[in-house]
Design a protein around this nucleic acid. Structure first.
Lengths: 188, 188
DNA sequence: GTCTATAAAGCGATAGAC
DNA sequence: GTCTATCGCTTTATAGAC
C-alpha cells in the first residue's frame, strides 16, 4: 500500500459526512481519522486549529458550493423561473431526497451554533436574499418576496427534520414539489 | 442549607433544558448535575440507566405534555378551529417565540435519532395525525388534511431552525401567524 | 437519598521519529 | 506529510460513607 499525499480540500467531503452524521460534539478526531483514512498527526498538520478549524472549513466549503450552484444563479440569472427550478433540483440532489441532513441547520440547533454563528447566519441570509431577488424578478414585490423566501427556507429545513424523524423520504420530495408549485405559480 | 429530597419528575425540566441547549452528546453528567443541583450519585440513583435513561425520560415528558395540551384537543375537540388556534398559542409559548429549540427535532437531526427513533417518530406521527383529524373536522378531505398537517409541522420545525440561525425571533412569530391564517381560511 | 472519591475509558491535542 | 506514542483532561459510571 503506497503512502498517499493528500490535500486539505480532498479531506473536506469525508469530514463533512462525519459532522453531518454525528454533530460537532459527536464527531471525534478518532472517527474523522478513520473516515478520512488519515492519522491524527496528519489531520492536525492540515488543521492546526483542531476540530473547530475542521468544522469551520467544512462550513466554508458548503457555503462555497451553495454560492456557486444555488445562490449565484438565483441572484443573477435573468431567467428567474429557471434558476428557481434548478435550485430545487440541486437541493433535492444535495440532500439526497431528505436522507441527508443539512449540516448548517443542524449546527444552528446545537451548541455549535454559538461557535459558528457567523457562518450559519451568513448561509441562510445569502440564500434568503438570493431567492427573494429571484422572486422579485418573477414579478413579486420586495416584502412579499422576502416573506416567501423565508417560508421556503423554513419548509426545506423543516422537511429535512420531518423526513428524518418519520424516517420517510417521501416527505421531502412532496414538500419540495408543493413549494415549487406555489413559487412558480402552478406552471408545472 | 437543608438537604433536599427530590422526586424523579422534579428533575426533568432542568434536564430538558440542558439537553435542549447542549444536545445529547454535549450534555455532560457534570452539567446536568450542576443544573439540577443534584450530585452525580443522586442522578444515577434516579436514573440507573445513565444519560440515555435521562434523555428518554425527558422525551417521555415532552410527549406527555404535547399529548395533553396539543394532540388530544386537536384529536377530540368538536370545535376544531378553536383547537387549532390553541395549538398555535401553546406552540408559541412552549418554544418561547422561537428562542427555544425543539428537543425532539434536534434529536431527529443528530446521532441521538437512532437511539430515540421510536420516541421521535411517535411524537411527530401523533402530532401530524391529530392535526389532520382537526382539519378533516374543519371540512378538508383526508388526503389534503394530511398534506397540510405535514407542511405545518415542517414550517414549525424549519422556523425554529431559521429563527436560531438568523438569530431573529420575529421569523417564528411571522411563520406561525401565516400558517395559522392558511389553516383557518383567513378567518382572523 | 445524598454526597465524595475514584475507576476505566475516551477525548482533543502534541511530540517526535521517519 | 505521515505515522505512533503519549500527555493531560474530561467523560460516564460505580463504590461506599453518611
Amino acid at each position: 500500500m503506497a503512502k498517499m499525499v493528500s490535500e486539505r480540500a480532498d479531506l473536506l467531503p469525508a469530514m463533512a459526512e462525519v459532522f453531518r452524521e454525528h454533530g460537532f460534539e459527536g464527531a471525534s478526531i478518532a472517527l474523522i481519522s478513520e473516515k478520512t483514512g488519515l492519522g491524527k498527526g496528519s489531520l492536525y498538520h492540515f488543521f492546526p486549529g483542531g476540530k473547530e478549524e475542521m468544522a469551520g472549513a467544512v462550513l466554508g466549503e458548503i457555503g462555497a458550493w451553495f454560492t456557486t450552484h444555488v445562490f449565484a444563479p438565483l441572484q443573477w440569472d435573468t431567467d428567474a423561473a429557471a434558476a428557481i427550478d434548478r435550485m430545487f433540483r440541486a437541493v433535492i440532489e444535495y440532500f439526497d431526497s431528505g436522507r441527508r441532513v443539512c449540516l448548517v441547520g443542524a449546527f444552528a440547533l446545537a451548541t455549535s451554533r454559538d461557535r459558528f454563528a457567523k457562518q450559519v447566519r451568513s448561509y441562510f441570509r445569502m440564500w434568503k436574499e438570493a431567492l427573494a431577488t429571484a422572486l422579485v424578478r418573477l414579478g413579486r414585490d420586495k416584502p412579499a418576496a422576502e416573506l416567501m423566501a423565508e417560508e421556503v427556507l423554513a419548509v426545506i429545513q423543516g422537511s429535512l427534520v420531518l423526513a428524518r424523524a418519520l424516517d420517510d423520504r417521501t416527505v421531502f420530495a412532496r414538500s419540495m414539489s408543493r413549494v415549487k408549485r406555489v413559487l412558480l405559480g402552478h406552471q408545472r
